[in-house]
């Protein structure tokens, strides 16, 4: 049943996402594609919305995927699923265990997990980049280069680099998102 499936899959996502919202992107992508819920393009649409609206990206994605598959109840169950593991684990830590990070086995495990999460995020960025900019993700598909998307990507990268040099601080994602929406309208509209 779709409701149970949504809850179960997002519970698993909540349970295995170490390191915040971006770390969740590769796992959600695996899940929605494996279950045939979304295509890569559609996933990127949802991701674009989740990044452009307030709130944790993980919650936004869960709500969006849940709603697309099973309406309001679906969105509530997917969100509940992604939240519950955190809630239970943190409650146990805060109430009973205390700061478990000082235990050495845990620390060693996390030392292995951290670089893998970083790598998963970067590789998700690369392969989603293949999809958006070059129009393919696997060798089964033909190359379909989107020059306009490449131009926007290049401008955003340059802008972010320049702003960082001038202000000594990375520009906030929301500024880049607004700029890119504007660039999209101008460049695709021509």
């Amino acid at each position: 049943m779709i409701y149970i499936k949504l809850f179960y899959e997002f519970f698993k996502i909540g349970l295995f996402t170490f390191g915040g919202g971006y770390a969740m992107i590769p796992i959600v992508r695996d899940t929605v594609i494996k279950n045939g819920w979304l295509t890569d393009e559609r996933f990127l649409d949802f991701l674009a919305v989740s990044e452009s609206t307030p709130g944790p990206v993980a919650i936004n994605m869960a709500t969006f995927v849940g709603s697309s598959q099973a309406g309001l109840l679906g969105s509530i169950l997917a969100t509940l699923g992604v939240v519950l593991p955190s809630f239970i684990i943190i409650l146990i830590i805060a109430a009973i265990i205390g700061n478990f990070l000082k235990k050495r086995g845990v620390e060693a495990f996390l030392k292995g997990v951290r670089p893998s999460v970083v790598a998963l995020i970067i590789s998700a960025g690369i392969t989603l980049g293949f999809r958006t900019l070059l129009g393919f993700t696997s060798i089964k598909e033909k190359l379909n280069i989107d020059y306009k998307a490449i131009i926007i990507f290049a401008i955003i990268t340059l802008l972010s680099f320049v702003l960082k040099k001038i202000k000594r601080k990375k520009p906030s994602p929301i500024i880049l998102i607004i700029t890119s929406a504007f660039l999209g309208i101008v460049i695709y509209g021509i």
């Binding site: 991701l47 960025g125 990507f153 998102i177």
Partner: peptide, 10 residues
């Protein structure tokens, strides 16, 4: 446009 930006953000 936003999708190209999301790639950069990730």
């Amino acid at each position: 446009g936003i999708k190209a930006c999301v790639i950069y953000l990730i």
